[in-house]
Design a protein around this nucleic acid. Structure first.
Length: 177
DNA sequence: CTAGGGATTGTCT
DNA sequence: GACAATCCCTAGG
């Protein structure tokens, strides 16, 4: 995948502009959020549980959890018992399969829950290594223009500007201020 | 044991 | 703009 040795806060912007494919379906990462060790908003904050076990495992593995009882959210585990939530992709490959899974063509990968549905990521992939199939990564080309701001949908540490995005992308789940 | 809430989204108004 | 859907963890009795 990539050579990297930083924590979740460093990994989050590093993933912007990279291409993620799952079984050949995916696109360019345009939005991420960092959840650090010691971060009250991170699922790893209270300590290990069955749900968050992957965050305490080896880095560059998947942490997949269910959100609000019905959506899946996909994270890349970092070196610090933190993780990076992948919130949005610019769809590039397998658009027909995405649309079939999503039941339409609107907002295919715009939002963490939509993205997992389009790529068929479920709890079955929780803890799976990201450097082998079905996962495939491509390094970014050039230097992306990255913006950052507060994270979305949380109730703790709300002021930390740990959401990152590709400036001007139409595929962001929300605009940056 | 029960009650409450969350890193969300689709649908209806 | 409001609300339902509905799993897993946490807090408290």
């Amino acid at each position: 995948m990539i050579e990297f040795d930083g924590d979740a806060l460093a990994l989050a912007p590093r993933l912007i502009g990279m291409t993620l494919l799952v079984d050949g379906v995916g696109g360019l990462i345009v939005e991420t959020e960092a959840y650090l060790r010691g971060d009250p908003a991170s699922h790893s904050f209270p300590g290990p549980t069955p749900r968050n076990a992957a965050m305490f495992g080896p880095p560059f593995h998947a942490y997949v959890y269910r959100s609000y009882g019905l959506h899946w959210c996909f994270n890349v585990v970092a070196q610090d018992q933190g993780a990076v939530l992948i919130r949005a992709l610019a769809p590039l490959a397998g658009l027909e399969r995405m649309a079939a899974r999503r039941g339409g063509t609107t907002g295919l990968c715009t939002g963490p829950g939509r993205l997992t549905q389009a790529l068929a990521i479920t709890g079955a992939l929780d803890g799976a290594p990201l450097d082998r199939p079905p996962f495939d990564w491509r390094e970014r080309e050039g230097t992306p223009d990255i913006v950052n701001g507060p994270r979305i949908g949380i109730t703790k540490a709300m002021d930390e500007p740990w959401r990152f995005g590709l400036r001007g992308s139409p595929f962001l789940s929300r605009r940056f201020a």
